[in-house]
Computed example of a mutant assay.
Amino acid sequence: MEASHLIVLLLIGYIVFTIDNHAKAFPQPPILVLIGIGLSFIPFFSSMELTQKTLYEFFLPALLFISAYKYPSAALRKHGGVIGLLSTGGLIVTVGLLGGAIYYLASPFLALPFIGALIIAAILAPTDPISVTAILKQASGDETIADIVEGESMINDGTSIVVFTTLVTIVSSGKDLSALSVLGDFLLVSLGGIAIGLIFGWLVCKAVHYTHHKEFQVMLSIVLAYGNFFLAEALGVSGVLATVTAGIMLSWEFTHTNKEDHYRESLDGFWDIVEPTLLSLVFLTIGIIAPKYLDIKHLLLAFLIFIGSLIIRYIVIQLSLFTLPSTKKMGQSDALLISFAGVKGTMSVVLLLILETVNDENIQFYISVSFIAILLSLIIQSFGIYPLTKKLSK
């Protein structure tokens, strides 16, 4: 990305986020993506690219850290059971059921291997409701559903990349992995990432009190967001879960920190600028690169997969809410809102770009169908969540 591209994209992002402050139910990500698709036809932007490395190693750690440290620890304590269930076991069940549905839906179009159907399902499993949670709170006045959706999306990113990596390993190696070895790898990568996040999150929570200079405190948060991520990745465990865990640790620390330290205010002053900046660049660039991945002949199948993903997510959420005593009182409308708020976004695109490096004859098909389904989710669900919430609230 050249400097001239950067300045133009930031200016567009500024305009979109400014409009958002004056408009009702205005979801920025799909607006930015649609603008990006329009920009892709302008020669000035033809040289722009978005690599898996840039998205995964530069944009993702900061966005994950921001969502984690801003997430209220009281909400995590209150909804921890349903968040944990949906973002781990619920996601794995979703991948299995959606993979089966994709395998069945794709049969009239091509002979899709079942492992390929599972890979597409793993790409579409993580949620990224960046602007949807704010719209949910605005439309319903109830923070419960928004907190569950946001907490789930924060953790299921880590689960999804572990599941996806395991499936891609099977395709790349051509070998069948035993259920025991898959479970062992999953636990090692997940728990290892959480452990690193706990350790370094705790260290930073203690170290931050050694200085009252807000500039240095902000510097330390940058080190935590990125250093934690890269250390975990270097050790072969989940950098995503490490960063999320460290951010949650920091959120917990805010409830025990002297307000005179003004640590939260210092961090918010910095990261509240970083977040819209990164979101503008990410979603505009996703839109700009989208046309080269889209094949219109896959539109019908992608739409059927998108509808199937909504139905399966609703079933899994309904069962999860019924299973836990703390959420049994939540009804079908709550399950429907949580389902519909599970928009596909940044992590799904990361997984899709990782797939480009895999040597398999069906890879381009996987990428095209997945990308169309992601865009359908981003546009339809983001724009539909406000009227749906208002209707169900009545």
Rank of each mutant, 00 (worst) to 15 (best):
T323H: 04
S238F: 06
F230N: 01
E150D: 11
S173M: 03
K78Y: 05
G384D: 10
L324N: 09
A341T: 02
A75Q: 04
E260S: 14
D142H: 06
L85P: 14
G96M: 10
L376Y: 11
A62L: 12
T245K: 00
S107F: 12
G197C: 10
M330R: 12
K259L: 15
G236K: 05
L250Y: 01
E233I: 01
R77M: 13
L60Q: 02
V204A: 13
L110R: 07
S221V: 02
L34D: 08
I115H: 05
K328W: 08
L85A: 11
V208L: 14
E152F: 09
F26S: 10
A146M: 09
V282R: 03
M249Q: 10
G345L: 06
S238R: 00
E57W: 00
Y226T: 03
L39K: 00
L353P: 14
L50G: 10
S333P: 09
L376P: 15
I42Q: 08
G384I: 04
T94C: 05
D268Y: 02
K24R: 14
G38K: 01
E2V: 02
H298V: 01
N258W: 07
F45N: 08
F114N: 03
V171N: 00
S67D: 15
L105C: 07
Q381N: 11
I315G: 10
T243W: 02
V149I: 08
L301V: 02
A290L: 09
I19Y: 09
A111S: 12
S309K: 03
P126T: 07
G36I: 07
M347A: 15
T18K: 12
L124P: 13
G269V: 01
F186D: 10
A234M: 09
A335N: 13
T133E: 07
V8G: 03
A117T: 01
